[in-house]
Nucleic acid binder design. Structure first.
Length: 494
RNA sequence: GUUCCCAUCGUCUAGCCUGGCCUAGGACACCAGGUUUUCAUCCUGGAGACACGGGUUCAAAUCCCGUUGGGAAUACCA
């Protein structure tokens, strides 16, 4: 019964990165096919000759793989640019039947004079009145088919039975159905899924990065200071004046200002240190849910349970906080050593400074320190930066509260503790823990009164992992060096 | 403008199809308290929604109509 097998597809156009909306579409098509013993195919829609690139195509494929998706025609994904003959055959039939006509060097499809009905699995039956849709171009002057024509021909040619795509295509569906009818091709089952938007309701796009970068740049003195690479400075003005949304400039600004640009593309999430499984989980949840208050699930569960009857109709806003929370939960569900391995592997690609400085054993300690306070790897690295390099300056508020308050109470404790710490042997977490405990017992000083000054001395801030682990990771030399420096810096204030 | 789609806490949503079990459930965020050497984790509690107006019905978040609001399409982009 090969006719009854389900075939879905994902058909990206290689004009840029794979963004989360496309990723979710791919995920759902994949899940539906996998859950129904069907096939999931890939097709490259490169009919836009000016915007398509091989690099974008490779990147999109990589992103899909990273997400854990696989497709059944991986050995030879069809490329629309290479199937012109196929389109032309169908085109000829349309022309001969007078269902299409030449216009200005292009070819237009003649819309039928009756209503067109689209049966959609999530939205129901949609009827578009006759005469509402204009005759549209199906072959461009350059001889390439347009999207509408190619998608219909290709889906039929590839045996696609189910088309799951974004709701932005709902209004296009009547065109596709009309085309299928004129061509005598079967109409696949359609399922139009809701769109994903920014929290402010705007459409998610790479321009958001430009927006964020521009806003931050205008807040700063960057305009006067300029970018470090002089080549970009000419363009900076235009960028700030909203004349361009050049991504390179946005990136340069972000780098200079140490700014986090919003993640839009799948690769952005990879760079930020999210787990692909969590991204998939969250993406699937945006517009679909398995019911029963279940929110956490893996792709296998998705495949098993995904169906159109639980797909929502309303466009969803992308909530990074919730994604972050889910990712943090996933980390907490891992063992420390698994977390260490995953974090270290990620650092190998994105944070060489950490990877180079900490070997596997040290990473386990790091991971232990951050296991309970990490949501994404990049965030963990930001927090743990003082382990890798010296910090910039002391947090004033923390210094006042923990070092200087009550006539330098904290500073005094730190000074008292300093020599005992110097004598500690071996210098490790367990020993440090015992020392602090006994120091507090002997002197009657509270734990916090010792730990907080220490934190500030070694990290510049009052927030670090447990102090014994922190000292252990820092090692004797660095710890003592920073403690002495702190004592010196605030000597006059005591 | 026209056509189409949509409408439950701030956000994602359950419930709607097959009206009564809904004084509307969960999650994220938020607030308060507890645990804790900081932060975080963890635990407990809290605030928070059926867009509006008409119907239908003994009964409506659930069905119907309208209004308003949001979105999409209207490209020789996909």
């Amino acid at each position: 019964m090969s006719e009854s097998i389900i075939v879905t597809r994902f058909a990206p156009s290689p004009t840029g990165h794979l963004h989360v909306g496309g990723a979710r579409t791919a995920l759902l098509n994949w899940a539906y096919a996998r859950g129904h013993g069907g096939k999931f195919l890939l097709r490259i829609e490169d009919t836009d000759q000016t915007r398509s690139t091989a690099a974008a195509e490779r990147a999109i494929l990589d992103d899909l793989k990273w997400l854990g998706l696989d497709w059944d025609n991986a050995d030879d994904e069809p490329r629309q640019s290479q199937r012109l003959d196929l389109y032309n055959d169908h085109m000829r039939r349309l022309l001969e039947a007078d269902r299409a006509y030449e216009d200005d060097g292009a070819v237009r499809f003649r819309m039928p004079d009756h209503d067109v009905v689209v049966v959609d699995q999530v939205l129901g039956e949609v009827r578009v009145p006759a005469g509402q849709t204009e005759d549209f171009v199906i072959r461009k002057r350059d001889g390439f088919p347009t999207y509408h024509f190619a998608v219909v021909v290709d889906d039929a040619d590839m045996g696609v039975t189910h088309v799951i795509r974004g709701q932005e295509h709902l209004s296009n569906a009547p065109k596709h159905v009309a085309l299928q009818q004129a061509l005598g091709l079967p109409t696949p089952v359609y399922a139009h899924i809701p769109l994903i938007f920014n929290p402010d309701g705007s459409k998610m796009s790479k321009r958001d990065k430009a927006k964020t970068a521009r806003a931050a740049a205008l807040q700063s003195d960057l305009k006067a200071r300029g970018l470090p690479s002089p080549g970009l400075n000419d363009a900076l003005g235009d960028f700030l004046d909203k004349k361009t949304d050049d991504l390179d400039i946005a990136l340069a600004i972000a780098a200079e200002l140490n700014l986090q640009l919003p993640e839009i593309d799948v690769s952005d999430f990879q760079k930020s240190g999210y787990f692909p499984a969590v991204l998939c989980n969250y993406l699937a949840l945006l517009g679909w849910n398995p019911g029963g208050d279940v929110e956490k699930f893996d792709n296998a569960f998705l495949c098993e349970r995904f169906d159109f009857n639980r797909v929502g109709k309303k466009n969803a806003k992308f909530d990074r906080e919730k994604l972050l929370a889910f990712n943090g939960d996933a980390i907490r569900e891992m063992s420390v050593s698994d977390f260490a391995t995953a974090w270290r592997n990620w650092c190998a690609d994105y944070r060489r400074d950490f990877y180079d400085q900490f070997d596997e054993a040290a990473f386990v300690k790091l991971a232990e320190a951050y296991h309970q306070r990490t949501r994404v790897f990049s965030e963990a690295c930001d927090m743990a930066k003082f382990f890798v390099e010296d910090f910039d300056g002391y947090d004033d508020k923390a210094v006042k509260k923990n070092l200087l308050k009550n006539d330098g109470e904290g500073l005094n404790a730190l000074r008292q503790f300093r020599d005992e710490l110097a004598a500690l042997d071996p210098f490790d977490g367990a020993a440090a823990h015992e020392l602090i405990k006994s120091f507090c017992e002997r002197t009657g000083i509270g734990m916090g009164k010792v730990a907080q000054p220490l934190r500030i001395a070694v990290s510049g801030s009052a927030v670090t992992p447990p102090i014994d682990l922190t000292l252990d990771l820092l090692g004797r030399d660095t710890t003592l060096g920073r403690v002495d420096r702190c004592l010196e810096v605030y000597a006059a204030d005591a």
